[in-house]
Amino acid sequence: MAEFLNNYGFLIVTVVQQALLGMSLYYPLSAGQLSLASPGFYALGGYIAAIIGTAELFAPWRDLLGKAVFPLEWIIAGVASALLSLVIGLPALRLRGIYLALATIAFVQIVRVISLNLSITGGAIGIFGIPQLFESRWGYIWIFGPLLAATLLFTWRLEQGRIGRAFRAIREDELAAEAMGINPTRYKAQAFIIGGTLAGVVGAMSAPFLNTWNARQGTFDASIAYLAYVLIGGTRSLWGALLGAALLATLPEILRPLNDSRLIINGMVLVIVSIYLPQGIVGALARLRGAGKKKGVPAGGKT
């Protein structure tokens, strides 16, 4: 068991971590907003944790708090990300569809270039020697795991309640939702801020997990990867991001024995999965079950 976790622990925790990042994109999407801003907040959260963990300035905090400095990092990263997502979100959420996606890509790029050039973020090399919360990579499951469980529970509750209904109404038809007395701006901002905060917290947890943090963590590629988790998993279920991340984040590792050609096959799988699972993994599972029970898509609605 120990051997197995030594080898695959990192990968398993990575899946959970990536699933959380996929979730961060799922909230805006469930309110009909295609936001790709998550890597920006993820990068911000990671830098906050890395700086608090290593900078001379914060040495008194670390001495005073010991391991308790980690939760503090998460909180600060969460709050900072929430504030930044408010600042970015209010103007950006007036945009729709691909326009919002592009504006958020621009945001991610700007964060990346700025962090590449500041001295506090360590320039191109980044920040290294980040203090560890756990010895083994597998140990990090004890923070990412509960966060994922809490996030899923939170999302489930959210979707059952008034806010979830408002999100869905806006997603289906924003004008109609407004006519029904729902304030779209408010709910869209809420969805965006929840996503941004989650990504920031995940970033803060990831900096020690990866041992180092640099400008390569929050990129355009990451934006698309997180989107792919949700799309391949299924955009209409809270399980989508988890299933999508479980497939896509492990794929390059499953294909590792193929060496040189593993990324070629990885790309082919992306194409094939998008074509043959148009409703995502969740949709496909529901259809499988539906075939037995003659029931519709449980988490869905019309597509």
Partner: peptide
Amino acid sequence: VYQDTGGDEAGAINAFQNLINR
């Protein structure tokens, strides 16, 4: 024994884990 790290950090960790443990 070759294990591809790719260009990123997670890839490097995965490659090292494979080299070390497997």
